[in-house]
Amino acid sequence: MTPLHDLPHLGSGLGYRREIHQPTMEHRDRIDWLEVISEHYLFASVQGRERLAELSAAFPIVPHGIEMSIGTPGEVDEDYLDALAALVEEIDAPYFSDHLCFTRAGGVSLGSLTPLPRSRALAKELGRKAQRIQERVGVPFILENITYHVDLRTELTEAEFIAELCEHCECGLLLDLTNLHTNARNHGYDAAGFLDAIPTERVVQVHLAGGTEAHETLLDSHSSPVPEPVWALFDELLRRAPLKASLIERDQDFPDDFGELLGEVERARSAMRAAAPA
């Protein structure tokens, strides 16, 4: 297993979406790498697989899952993990990612990243589970913090839960700075304090996105430019830890001018370069 610090430096990437296929390919020289949604390709049609081959010939690709549901009691579905391992091998992915949450339980498929009942016992259980998944797939597994709304009164804070989980596995972290900013605002905690509490040396990659606001609640809709407080958190994180990769996430309301997304990709790259030790 590649140690996290030996993973390749991917640089500044963009979330691949079919809607922006053409400009993404046209501007491949300005985008360092792509993240694809694993589930779009795990059981993909012949055509989907050919598209993936086209992407993977042009960019390094990392598969990002949304439906592994590591938090669901029991083991992750074997067929899912087999397909994920095959996908990782097919595109020669340096690592793969998914969320620290659950999306299904008791026969209900929520289709939404749902917060866990954070306890020390659960962090230990899921840390070991993440380690098993990583070993099964064969490359490092990095786990992402979600935006959450349900405010269960749990034993551990989100940051404590993540830190505890890291004690029981060698997996990395995908720190979604927009989710951090969103949760900090919605639940009234200090984002810098969160960074103090998690093992930032485990952060391999970040997500940067923009959301919306409704009734004084921030929503992670991935539909607008990355807001300034998130860029500030990015700089703050870069002061604390060297990163392998950053990624601009946009899922809807794609700008007419693709240059806007490229501008964000470039801004992230500059920030990472400025922070890199000379």
Binding site: G71, T72, P73, G74, F102, R104, A105, G106, G107, V108, L110, S112, T114, P117, S119, L122, V150
Partner: peptide
């Protein structure tokens, strides 16, 4: 002690 029953109830509350 939080077990599978909790997740089942939680998921169902989220859709009902």
């Amino acid at each position: 002690m939080i077990g599978p029953a909790f997740y089942e109830a939680y998921a169902n509350v989220l859709v009902s």
